[in-house]
């Protein structure tokens, strides 16, 4: 009788713990949702407070950022330079990254892969401030020497960013190239094509959606990168001059959306100035949400093909 009772109470406790843990797991999982909600709410709420002071078009399309003296909060130059820097770096890293991905997936032998792949992963692991330091110490003086300008420039930011987003492009493109069904490759080879013709004509088209995912994710990363860009771009709030003397803006100093936040937060006082920085973050956030959605769409397409 006694033994039966203890067993029953044990049973009660094990069941209780079982149910409790199930609930704890669910609540932890819900923390992700709560965090995303809080992040969105706080960034957008603080950003929206700005629009009680100035009008939305003045913010988005204003040319002048004079937050302290004249209460002017125009971020158009920053939007322009953000896009300039992002697409400039993509221009370098897309060919290089996809080339490296093809090399890893189709050409390199096992020992070579065992050297290149850790290198790519390590490139992803290096902190962004180290890239910034590298840019500041080597790339900026080089530009200074060759072009007789300040050196801190959009070009320096493009070079540093293009290195930083390489791992994203390489690893995701490589995965999607590897996921191309063997039959596609074999049927191409059976037609008597060379290796390059197979890669260009059969493998690459079949892995397009994966490569686009990679590029879009890299775009988001480049757009959101703050520290490394801040260190090499000069952070002046003027519109980059698109004159031929400055190589169509490449050599001019600029400020992106992210570096605007990093640069001003140190002295911004609570009030319109800080709210304007949150609003800048909100614009950045909207853009990131759009790129996330696009990459999510394409990633689902890869899984369908698989």
């Amino acid at each position: 009788m006694n033994k039966y009772l203890t067993q029953k109470s044990n049973r009660f406790w094990t069941d209780f713990v079982n149910n409790l843990m199930a609930n704890i797991f669910f609540l932890s999982a819900f923390i992700a949702v709560v965090s995303l909600f809080l992040i969105t709410a706080y960034v957008f709420y603080n950003g929206a407070k700005l629009f009680t002071v100035i009008a939305m078009p003045d913010f988005l399309f204003g040319f002048d950022w004079e937050p302290v003296n004249q209460k002017l909060f125009g971020i158009l130059p920053m939007i322009v330079s953000s896009f300039y820097v992002t697409f400039g770096s993509l221009l370098i890293s897309i060919p290089l990254g996809i080339g490296c991905a093809i090399f890893l997936a189709e050409i390199a032998s096992q020992p070579v892969q065992r050297i290149v792949r850790p290198a790519v992963q390590l490139l992803a692991g290096i902190p962004s401030v180290v890239y910034g330091l590298f840019g500041l110490a080597l790339v900026v003086p080089l530009i200074q020497q060759f072009a007789d300008v300040a050196g801190l420039s959009i070009l320096a930011a493009i070079i540093i960013l293009s290195i930083m987003i390489l791992p994203t492009i390489i690893s995701i493109s490589e995965d999607s190239i590897r996921a191309v069904p063997k039959e596609v490759k074999e049927s191409s080879i059976a037609l008597g094509t060379t290796k390059w013709q197979t890669i260009f004509g059969a493998v690459l088209p079949a892995s397009t959606s994966g490569i686009i995912t990679a590029v879009v994710l890299a775009l988001g990363r480049a757009f959101g990168e703050a520290m490394a860009v801040k260190m090499v771009i000069g952070n002046t709030q003027t519109m980059p001059s698109f004159s031929p003397e400055s190589l169509f803006g490449l050599l001019s100093l600029a400020r992106t959306l992210t570096t605007n936040i990093i640069g001003d937060i140190e002295y911004a006082e609570a009030g319109p100035h800080q709210d304007a920085l949150f609003a800048t973050g909100a614009i950045l956030f909207i853009f990131i949400i759009v790129t996330n959605a696009i990459s999510y769409m394409f990633r689902r397409r890869i899984h369908e093909i698989r």
Binding site: V43, T258, I261, F285, T291
Partner: peptide, 15 residues
């Protein structure tokens, strides 16, 4: 939510 949290740049987390 997890998918989106992974894509948010660190400066937004900072804000």
């Amino acid at each position: 939510a997890i998918e989106n949290l992974a894509g948010i740049p660190s400066i937004i987390y900072g804000l």
